[in-house]
Write a protein that binds this DNA or RNA. Structure first.
Lengths: 167, 167
DNA sequence: GTTTATCAGTTTCATATCGAAACTATATAG
DNA sequence: CTATATAGTTTCGATATGAAACTGATAAAC
């Protein structure tokens, strides 16, 4: 994917048009969006992260239309984000559970949620997500360097893969 | 918002139904999605982060229909994610630039892009986003504790705001 | 100053998607 | 055997989308 308004960011070099195009075309964002880019998909995943796993649970909790839910679940399963299995305890039921691929969407959901808290709803949501050890809230999601420093937009730049320092 | 499949996560306490409902309703994710939850919105933002700012640039680069682009730009401006201004150099043109609120979506876009690279496109995209200082690629987006430790799903839990340790 | 081109939209219309409600198929409970 | 729960599918009207043509304003060319 791409990013970075180099134009008016002090200190950030202006990107030439050709490179800009490359950044926009060779980007995994459209690929990611085709898997989870629909509104309901995010909300279904949120529910799955909270332990919901049955059709009726999703439908009742989210208030989504049944045909749309059916369609979204199918797509999420096709994309291997959810796993569909008959419930061994009750064969009428089907469970949808997160795969590893699905679980790794957690940072995306958390980042979106934090942004919404800060900029849209305004209110810090009530149950708070905390680190189990310290019992303190998690840190705000941020872009970071390898050593953990958080990076702002003008501390970032694009580099061609071939020109990366070795190691 | 919500999250966390407590059910089968070893060590993670099972959440009671009532609390689960609260987690799902008092969540900023739906709010965030109503602002940026449409496919094109993310792609327009990606382009804006790369320095695109004019209608024709977005249209040509993204291949989006003009009426939809018009609609999405209007909505992004209404949501104060983009700022609309006449171009002082050429009064025919209008520039759309990121606001602070818009720029703070960077972690979301980066997280989505990284996920897409790893799980969908499979290939690490070519221009690489690096830390300007070290010239090394940025770290993978991760949920972290206040002290910077990365946290996995089963190291997370929900706590009611009132029961947070003081400080 | 007239013509032409550019830019940022709007309008139109055909198609695709969505959502509410009713219907279906299978499994379980009594 | 009957009633109910679960996970869908079908139907149909409303909404959103996309391609293409059109508009209005500014700027550039001559």
């Amino acid at each position: 994917m791409p990013f970075l308004s180099q134009r008016k960011m002090d200190g950030m070099a202006v990107i030439e048009r050709e490179y800009q195009k490359k950044i926009l075309t060779e980007c995994a964002l459209p690929a990611a969006l085709s898997a989870v880019g629909e509104r309901w998909s995010f909300l279904i995943l949120r529910a799955a992260f909270n332990g919901l796993s049955h059709f009726e649970e999703f439908q009742g909790t989210l208030g989504i239309a049944r045909n749309i839910l059916s369609n979204r679940l199918t797509r999420l399963v096709e994309n291997e984000i959810l796993q569909r299995e008959p419930d061994p305890a009750d064969r009428r039921k089907v469970t949808y559970t997160l795969t590893d691929k699905g679980r790794e969407l957690l940072p995306v959901l958390i980042a979106l949620r934090q942004w919404g808290e800060r900029w849209v709803s305004g209110v810090p949501s009530n149950p708070v997500l905390v680190d189990r050890d310290s019992q303190r809230p998690i840190a705000p999601m941020a872009v970071r360097a390898q050593d953990g420093r958080t990076l702002s937009l003008n501390e970032l730049m694009w580099v061609d893969r071939d020109r990366l320092p070795i190691r």
